[in-house]
C-alpha cells in the first residue's frame, strides 16, 4: 500500500513528508520495492532487465548499462549477466530483484520476505547486502516470518497479527515485555505433557508453550528465580524431567506470547486467516 501497489482505502500515510495518497508518482520516486516473488522479467537476461528498469527511470542507455554492470558485479551476478532469468536459481533471482530496486538509489526500500525459501548461505548473503544498504544510509522496511532474521537485522520491530500491529520496539524491549527469561523443560514421559502444563500454569499463572512431539514445555518467567518454583511444583506432581535450562526468550516466544496462539492450541486452525502467512508477519524496520 505504501509502495503504491494498492490504493490506500482508509486513513493517510506520508513518506518523507510526501502524501502517499495524493502524490503516488512522487512516492514512487522515493521507494524501492522488492516483492516476495522476484519481480523481474523471465524472458530477458539479467543485463536486459536492469537496463530496462534503468531506462524507465530516465537514465541514458549508456548510464543504464554502466549501472547494471556495477550492480551485477556487487551482487556477484556478473557471470550470469547474459543468461535469461528463467534459468536463474531462486537466490539469484532475489538478488537481481534487489539490485533492480537499487537502480534508483531509493532512500526507502521495502523488502517483502526477501529470504523466504532461500538456503542458509544465500540468506547470509542477502543479510550482508541488507546490512550494507543500511550502512549506506537507506531505511529498510523488511517483512519476514523468520524471527531470527528480525532479531539479527532490525533496529525496530513491529509485530503484526492479522493485520493489526500488536507490539513495536527494539528486539530487547520486546523480549523484556514478555518476561525476562524462559525455562525450557523436557519431560521424560511425553504423555504427561498436559498435566505438566496444568501444574506450570498453577505456579506461574501463565500458560506455557508446548512442543508435544519432543515432550517440551517452555515456561515464560517474569523472574528467573521462579524457575525453582516450577521445578518444585513438577516434583510434587511426580513429573520427571530430562533436561531443564533457563534462557532469555527468543523472538519466536515473544511472537507467540504477543499474538496469543500457542503452537499446540488448535482452536483457530479452522480459521482461514491463519493459513495466510502474511497475517502473522513480523515487520522489522531499520533506521540508519
Amino acid at each position: 500500500m505504501l509502495a503504491t501497489l494498492l490504493p490506500i482505502d482508509a486513513s493517510e500515510a506520508e513518506i518523507f513528508g510526501v502524501d502517499v495518497k495524493a502524490s503516488p508518482h512522487q512516492v514512487r520516486q522515493l521507494v524501492g520495492v522488492t516483492g516476495q516473488y522476484a519481480s523481474v522479467d523471465e524472458n530477458l537476461t539479467a543485463t536486459e532487465n536492469l537496463v530496462l528498469f534503468g531506462r524507465l527511470l530516465g537514465m541514458s542507455g549508456k548510464a543504464a548499462r554502466a549501472a547494471s554492470e556495477e550492480l551485477l558485479e556487487s551482487f556477484g551476478l556478473e557471470e550470469a549477466a547474459k543468461r535469461q532469468i528463467s534459468k536463474f536459481s531462486g537466490g539469484m533471482r532475489r538478488r537481481l530483484d534487489l539490485a533492480a530496486s537499487l537502480l534508483s538509489r531509493p532512500p526507502l526500500i521495502f523488502l517483502d520476505e526477501p529470504t523466504t525459501g532461500l538456503d542458509p548461505r544465500t540468506r547470509g548473503q542477502m543479510w550482508d547486502t541488507i546490512r550494507t544498504l543500511v550502512a549506506g544510509g537507506s531505511t529498510v522496511l523488511l517483512t519476514t516470518q523468520y524471527l531470527d532474521e528480525a532479531d539479527q537485522l532490525a533496529d525496530r520491530i513491529a509485530v503484526i497479527d492479522r493485520g493489526v500491529k500488536v507490539a513495536e520496539g527494539t528486539s530487547e524491549e520486546l523480549k523484556t515485555s514478555v518476561g525476562s527469561s524462559t525455562l525450557h523443560l523436557r519431560l521424560s514421559d511425553k504423555t504427561q505433557i498436559a498435566t505438566a502444563a496444568a501444574v506450570v500454569e498453577k505456579v506461574t499463572g501463565d500458560r506455557p508453550v508446548l512442543t508435544p512431539e519432543a515432550g517440551g514445555v517452555n515456561v515464560p518467567l517474569a523472574d528467573a528465580d521462579r524457575a525453582a518454583d516450577v521445578l518444585i511444583g513438577l516434583r510434587h506432581a511426580d513429573i520427571s524431567i530430562t533436561t531443564a535450562n533457563v534462557q532469555q526468550p527468543t523472538l519466536d516466544e515473544v511472537f507467540l506470547a504477543l499474538t496469543g496462539h500457542g503452537t499446540a492450541s488448535s482452536e483457530n486452525s479452522e480459521d482461514p486467516d491463519r493459513a495466510q502467512s502474511t497475517d502473522h508477519d513480523i515487520r522489522t524496520e531499520e533506521v540508519a
Binding site: L5, Q26, R28, G35, V40, D41, F53, L56, L57, A100
Partner: peptide, 11 residues
Amino acid sequence: GVFDRFKALPI
C-alpha cells in the same frame, strides 16, 4: 511479478 515492479516505478 514484473508488473508489480512496473507499478511501483515512477513511470
